[in-house]
Design a protein around this nucleic acid. Structure first.
Length: 727
DNA sequence: AGCACGCCGACT
DNA sequence: GTCGGCGTGCTC
């Protein structure tokens, strides 16, 4: 830069947009920026927040070069976090700018929170004492700063009394710093009583944190074995060392109970982070994490991109949960990225689950992860007595979906004044509607999935893309009236049957399309826990960590659902889901039961669930995957192909097969694996491609992108299988 | 990702 | 005659 330029230097700045590399901006003389500084820069017609990046700035045409407008008064993004952004971008084949965008999603937080004006007592005395003045002086006795209205309220006087005292110099103005969103957690607040096996695991985790280095521990133990208390000890250790902690939860909006458990242990709530957070709170949490005021965050996957300065531990609770996958924009699995974050930050990571993912199990048995197992001997008494109901031998009556045995048990439970849970992972009334006259089936005009009937709403709804239409009375194909047949059950239809059989019972349906959203859902869950329902019929959202103390029967309406969809993880997913659901019963000390309606009672998943022998299931699943070269052994890389039509997407898939030397190992999965990708009329298929190395796979996809500029943006790599192959 | 520019259908 | 659909291209 020439001597008389108004700018001293140029800096690389990562802007929140799909740029492959940082843009170069001029640094006005007198402005100081360092890597990590958050700056305001002009970008096209608008102003955006960007992050000053590492390395030198590109040489850019001086006419294009524009100046940084402002450096925000905000702690710079720390080095490990910047390397994390680069790493995630490289690994997911996303633009670094798009990863940076995830970090900058609290735009108001870059300016410091304002200090508020307060008043504090001086040595001066008022000229005359009155009753009101006396009350004020008494209330303000501690020498602490008050807000004007706050003190008036506390003393029970009008604020003019305060103004009068202030005018006489009895109070003086001071500035009060912003209040922390949560109090500081105290690692010694409530020392837990740990069972011997918990103590062993807790010591192991504590030692990992104390040793101050990267390492992953899989914390593995059945429902009720006390995993949370155990990893809280690791949290305590990290806090004692002055480090920040991140606890990832799959769906924090519904895990209110978790925050309370945390408070019981540490005397304060953790900072919360999820998409439902009010914008004002969002800013505060972001800012206070950056400043180090918030020491512990409990959050959804996006919390991984909070600007921690002194992160010293990540716990991933329910590490197997598919909610950790983000499947839009930047595709990542937060569990895997947490492991990477720990590696880059040089601190330990704890993965916790009663039903670990197969890949984490394999990493543990191979010694890449430490394995802390809770035997759960103390929880065993509470486990429900589980049985498979062979639907071939004991079929339900025609037109119904509950077997006589299950119906009988519901009745018995009802009589005892206890609660039943019927689980069916399918929203709506019926998954398919057809015309009995011409055989016409109602499909989605946008994405070709079947339309699901929602009878309460009188609609046919596509569960992939959200398309909805009114349920017609006549067949659109042959015009016949009143001959449309609902095929198969959804939760609404099960509710219909239950209400017909047990009209006196209080029945409630819980699914994600409940009117009133998350708030209503939370209220309903609390009501159920209090005993305000006899029979609960729900989709998978009832499986997630909610305790229903009077729930003594769990009936799985269709235990086979999810086993037959061609997903290599179908068995594993079903095992995990059924374990969680059946675990909802038996938290009571009372005798409790679980019934699984199945046409495949000999299936390994059913056997494992019924016998409680998870070990045999894992062993079998691992052996089978090893033989088939499936994850986590094949080092599979995934590709999502998207196109406007199904035929076009399949064409892309064929082209990929032709172009890939590993063609024999490419296989196409239906949209079931990535339902969220089926949006806006774009068909997306995930291809799993088995290559020698991930880098080969990436090179292959890059070549595909280079060959067909029309395909840019329609072919992406998603690698989410083997979280340690990259370290 | 935004946002502008730009070219073809139904309407105040 | 305009309003408005989303295809293409650009941002230091």
């Amino acid at each position: 830069m020439s001597k008389d330029s108004p700018f001293d230097a140029a800096a690389p700045v990562l802007v929140p947009m799909p740029a492959e590399r940082p843009y170069t901006y001029a640094v006005p003389s007198g402005m100081r920026v360092v890597p990590g500084s958050i700056v305001r820069v002009p970008l096209g017609p608008r102003q955006v927040a960007g992050i000053v990046w590492d390395g030198g700035a590109d040489a850019v045409d001086a006419r294009k070069l524009r100046p940084i407008e402002e450096v925000f008064d905000c702690p710079p993004i720390a080095g490990p976090m910047r390397r994390f952004v680069d790493w995630v971008a490289h690994y997911t084949l996303s633009a670094p700018g798009m990863v940076a965008r995830m970090l900058l999603r609290a735009p108001e937080a870059f300016d410091p929170e304002p200090w508020t004006e307060g008043i504090v007592r001086t040595d001066a005395l008022p000229d005359r004492m009155t009753a009101a003045r006396a009350r004020v002086l008494e209330a303000a006795d501690g020498g602490l700063a008050w807000t004007r209205t706050g003190l008036a309220h506390a003393a029970g006087v009008s604020s003019t009394v305060i103004d009068g005292l202030k005018a006489q110099g009895v109070f003086e103005t001071v500035m009060i710093p912003p209040r922390p969103v949560v109090a500081a957690p105290d690692p010694a607040y409530a020392q837990p009583q740990l069972a011997p096996d918990q103590q062993v695991a807790a010591d192991m985790l504590r030692a990992g944190v104390a040793a101050d280095g990267f390492g992953v521990t899989l914390l593995d133990g059945v429902t009720g074995s006390g995993k949370t208390e155990v990893y809280f000890e690791a949290v305590a250790e990290a806090l004692e060392k002055g480090r920040q902690v991140l606890i990832l939860l799959p769906e924090i909006a519904l895990t209110h109970a978790f925050l309370e458990r945390f408070q019981d242990r540490f005397g304060a709530k953790p900072g919360e982070w999820h998409s439902d957070l009010a914008p004002r709170m969002r800013e505060k949490v972001w800012r206070q994490v950056a400043e180090g005021t918030v020491r512990v965050v409990a959050g959804a996957r996006s919390a991984l991109f909070l600007p921690f300065r002194e992160l010293g531990l990540i716990v991933v609770d329910e590490e197997h949960d598919p909610a950790y996958k983000q499947e839009d924009r930047v595709f990542y699995n937060a569990r895997d990225m947490a492991v990477v974050r720990g590696h880059l930050g040089g601190f330990p990571v704890v993965l916790s689950s009663a039903t670990p993912s197969v890949e984490s199990r394999v990493n543990a048995t191979r010694g890449r992860y430490r394995h802390a197992v809770l035997s759960g001997r103390f929880a065993e008494a509470a486990l429900p007595d589980l049985k498979a109901v062979d639907m071939r031998r004991a079929p339900p009556a025609k037109g119904s979906f509950l077997s006589p045995l299950l119906t009988e048990q519901i009745g018995a439970t009802l009589e005892k004044g206890e609660q039943s849970l019927l689980f069916l992972n399918r929203r709506g009334y019926a998954p398919l509607t057809l015309c009995r006259v011409c055989g016409h089936r109602f499909g989605c005009p946008v994405c070709s999935a079947w339309l699901v009937e929602h009878r309460f709403r009188g609609q046919l709804v596509c569960h992939h893309c959200g398309h909805a239409e009114k349920r017609p009375e006549a067949c659109p194909e042959c015009g016949t009236f009143d001959h449309l047949a609902a095929c198969g059950p959804g939760v609404e239809r099960i509710a219909e049957e239950v209400v017909a059989t047990f009209p006196e019972a209080r029945t409630i349906v819980l699914s994600s399309d409940i009117v009133g959203g998350v708030r209503r859902l939370r209220l309903e869950l609390e009501a159920i826990a209090k005993g305000d329902a006899d029979i609960v019929i729900g989709t998978q959202l009832v499986a997630k960590g909610h305790n229903f103390p009077n729930m003594t029967l769990v009936g799985v309406v269709d235990a086979d659902l999810g086993l037959a969809n061609g997903d290599p993880r179908a068995a594993e997913r079903t095992f995990q889901l059924l374990s969680q659901v059946t675990g909802r019963a038996g938290r009571t000390g009372k005798k409790s039961h679980g019934l699984l309606q199945t046409y495949q009672p000999d299936h390994p998943v059913m056997q494992a669930i019924v016998s409680g022998n998870a070990e045999s299931f894992y062993a079998r699943e691992i052996a089978e995957r090893e033989r088939a070269g499936l994850p986590p052994f094949g080092r599979l890389a995934g590709v999502i192909v998207s196109a406007a039509t199904r035929a076009e997407a399949e064409g892309h898939a064929r082209a990929l097969r032709r172009a890939a030397p590993e063609a024999a190992d490419i296989f196409v999965l239906g949209p079931a694996e990535a339902p969220l990708a089926l949006v806006a009329g774009r068909h997306r298929f995930r291809l799993l491609v088995q290559g020698e190395r991930r880098s080969d796979m990436q090179a292959f996809v890059r070549a595909m992108l280079a060959n067909g500029p029309k395909q840019r943006g329609s072919v992406r790599v998603q690698v989410d299988i083997d979280p340690q192959s990259f370290l």
